[in-house]
Amino acid sequence: MGGKPSGTRKHVSLHHERRGRGMRVLLVDDEPAMLLAMKRLLSSMNGVELVGSFRSAREALDFVRDKEVDLAFLDIQIAEDDGLELARSLRAFHSELIIVFTTSHAEYAMDAYDVYPLDYMVKPISRTRLAQTIARAASSGRASSEAGVPPSNRLTVRGLGCFEVGSTQAGAVKWISKKSMELFAYLLVNRGRSVSKLRILEDIFPGFPLKNAEIYLNTAVYQLRKALSDHGFKEIVINAQEQYRVDLSEVDVDFIQLELGMEELSELGAANAAAAVELDRQFTGELFEDKSFEWAAMERERLALLYNSFAKRLASWLLAQNRYSEALLIARRLIHRNEFEEESNLLLLRILGSMGDNQALIHYYEQYTMLLSGELGLQPSMEFRRLYEEYQ
């Protein structure tokens, strides 16, 4: 096909070009709000030139036929189109093109690496995470042009509702022992910060004699590194001067991305509403929900409180925009997590009242009243009864 590069000379010339003009970046996503959010983030970054943003594969392919592009951010699901097939077609025009997939679902990060993307990024994408990927793309462009080095591997961690770890290169991590798995989860919760050996021994090996606990810790570290070595990540577990930490530069952790996303969406509006709704969907359960890690209790509660606050703000904003079905879904999820929490129940009452569904409003009020009376021997608060009467 026309436009396909030929040999090392093309790569070297592109490398020199990038030094002078910055990376030419292409965006493809069928959500206008996500396109706008990404465009705003990229516009504030040095060394980046946004050359095109499109909502369909056809538009993107038409554009690259006679345009130079260094880096493409592709939604893996683009309406009727297939982001993976688009990546293959783009590579047919520009074999040196760096691909980064964006997705709302972390599980896609284990699939379809025949197109060799540099990275998978789970939406919503934080500025910090995007900057890291841009830097890696620039570095990858230099390395591949000089030595033909394949794109780097990534480790993906899901800690919300479960604990699953895998790499884009080798699939799921096979744990050698439960304690090595627990140690990795423990270090991840500390978000790259160093933790003293003594604190690890107290939290992960409580009640063990000190000498035995030290032996068990050394064994767990060895087993953890061995399990990660099959994926190319043995060196990310670092210990020095009786301090331990995990290097997160090549690790994508869902609960860390969730918290960063909530921080960046402190102000909700039309421009970031789609990203906020997508972020809410990513809270798929409590931190390490299926694991009995006693040391995780405080972090689990802290993250849950942050999410609850974010979800209530989002549901309230959606309600104000008359987006009732989306607000209702979030409110019901909040109540499912804590059926007696009054603020969430008041929110659900306001949504049902605003929708004008009197039958659903009456049914919900009676159900909530019976629940309070039967389980706690209480009646709804004055505020709850007053709000209910207002909608009658």
Rank of each mutant, 00 (worst) to 15 (best):
F101W: 05
N239Y: 14
V277Y: 00
R19G: 15
E326F: 00
M1R: 14
V64P: 11
V25H: 01
L329G: 09
F163R: 01
Q359V: 09
I351C: 14
E278D: 13
Q367P: 04
S309F: 09
A296G: 13
E242R: 10
G192L: 00
L14S: 13
N212F: 08
E250Y: 07
E286N: 08
W295Y: 04
V246P: 04
L50W: 10
V253L: 12
D66T: 09
S381F: 04
Y391G: 01
Y216L: 11
R225V: 00
I362T: 15
K39I: 05
D114M: 02
R386H: 12
L50I: 14
L26G: 01
S95K: 14
N212W: 14
L303C: 01
T128D: 10
L61W: 04
A138W: 04
L198Q: 09
F184M: 08
G261R: 04
K39V: 03
E49K: 09
S44Y: 05
R40F: 06
A131E: 12
R18Y: 02
V28F: 05
H231K: 06
Q223L: 03
L14G: 10
A112K: 11
I204D: 03
A274L: 11
G3Y: 04
F101E: 01
G83Q: 04
Y365K: 12
G285A: 08
I238C: 06
S180R: 15
E59T: 06
S354C: 12
A271I: 04
S44F: 11
L155F: 02
A315M: 11
V64F: 07
A271V: 11
Y324V: 13
K123V: 15
I236E: 01
A296D: 10
V100A: 03
K4C: 09
R302E: 15
I134H: 07
R142L: 08
I362F: 08
E341R: 02
D70Y: 06
L318N: 06
E164D: 15
A79Q: 11
I204G: 02
E182I: 01
N239V: 07
G192V: 01
Y113K: 06
Q359K: 12
E31K: 10
S89Y: 12
G83F: 00
L328E: 08
G166H: 02
K179G: 06
Q359H: 08
E267Y: 15
G2S: 07
A135D: 13
K211M: 14
R154H: 12
F293A: 10
S373C: 06
S6F: 08
T128E: 15
L319C: 06
E339L: 05
N345G: 06
A112V: 12
M34P: 02
D119M: 01
I99P: 00
L306H: 10
N239E: 10
I76N: 05
I351S: 05
Q359G: 14
A79L: 10
F184D: 00
T156I: 02
S89L: 12
L361Q: 15
